[in-house]
Design a protein around this nucleic acid. Sequence first.
DNA 1: CGCACTATATGCGCGTCACGCAAGTTTGGG
DNA 2: CCCAAACTTGCGTGACGCGCATATAGTGCG
Lengths: 202, 202
Amino acid sequence: MDDDEPRDVRTRNKRAVREAISAAALRLALEQGPGGLKLVRVSDIASAAGVAPRTYNNYFASREEAICAFQADQARRLGRALRSRPSDEPLAEAIIAAAIEVFATPEPDRAGLAMIMSTPELQGEALKAFTMAEEPLAAAIAERTGSGPQDTLRWQVMAAAVAAAVRIAGRHWLSTTSPPPFAAVLRDALGYVVSAQASGDL
Amino acid sequence: MDDDEPRDVRTRNKRAVREAISAAALRLALEQGPGGLKLVRVSDIASAAGVAPRTYNNYFASREEAICAFQADQARRLGRALRSRPSDEPLAEAIIAAAIEVFATPEPDRAGLAMIMSTPELQGEALKAFTMAEEPLAAAIAERTGSGPQDTLRWQVMAAAVAAAVRIAGRHWLSTTSPPPFAAVLRDALGYVVSAQASGDL
DNA sequence: CGCACTATATGCGCGTCACGCAAGTTTGGG
DNA sequence: CCCAAACTTGCGTGACGCGCATATAGTGCG
């Protein structure tokens, strides 16, 4: 729909710069610890990424957006991942598999996640990121089930529940001292929200 | 825990001022239409509420927070509402009843909701508001079921799914031209996320 | 009833930020 | 080889969030 992969040099550089800024922002935030987000100046991020402060603002409208860009990109991929699952796979398993593929491969970075979960401003931005996954996910589910528009509410609710489950799984996985594989937690959390609807009337 | 109701004059004034600021902010935003949020200056809100600009900032850290204060208060009440349901009521029905009591009584304001849903910044703040309901809701569910800490993930996921369902129900209700009672939409949406777990092993 | 005490409102000022605008610079196509 | 489009950058501006100090109103106690 919106992001193909033109081998254009410009587009490639754009992505690289975007990633550089995001990485720099996250790194600097981690250095300052949980409470010191406001101490990370925009100019610091820009210089750490090797661009002008003004350029930073061409890519992101706020520090939070830059730091959570990775999560936003992840969320964007969820719908596509579900579509690429074999169509004979049961819906519940397809969703779980897609989520694991997107969010648990590779294993998430504990430090970055901890930073986000412990900083209110970043929590808000991460929330927005997860929410962005809902619409394409709902569309993918609807297309997969081939049902009519009378079930849009159901699929939208399901998509939102899935996104919420992923978020809660992340928080729970973070809170455990001895880390089990994130995929396992994700599977459990998603099981709670997809098992019901699958048993309903699919 | 944090908000009893002392007949204190101070506390009462505080609440009144808070509500006045919030109402003024919402009203001014509605006057400017969906895209004109940035045109609503802080000083406008303050003068419309009859307070100094600095006082506005003592109550809210941003326009968005002020506008969505009502939703935040609603969300805060959800946990308490569930606790006040009769304990012999099935969990699913108790949750639905509590949600209807909090979010559909009285019927929501269509214009305000439309403003929020059509403005990205406000969507983000509303998201935060709904998320605030999750933790006390999960606690209430856990207490009600009397289960141990091995099920915290399940209840947190359920609470998050409930909050998400409420949000989606609001969006769906807004999109319908001929308005059915919001309680009905809410019931449907919540049914999708609570029926499963109830049938699971409760 | 008056007095000390505390909570709240307000004014002032500072540092930062997001963004519009107008060059300067790089990329891609004809 | 040159032109047009896209991107970066520097500058300037308006607004915002908030710390701090002060004035004021509410509260509890003797």
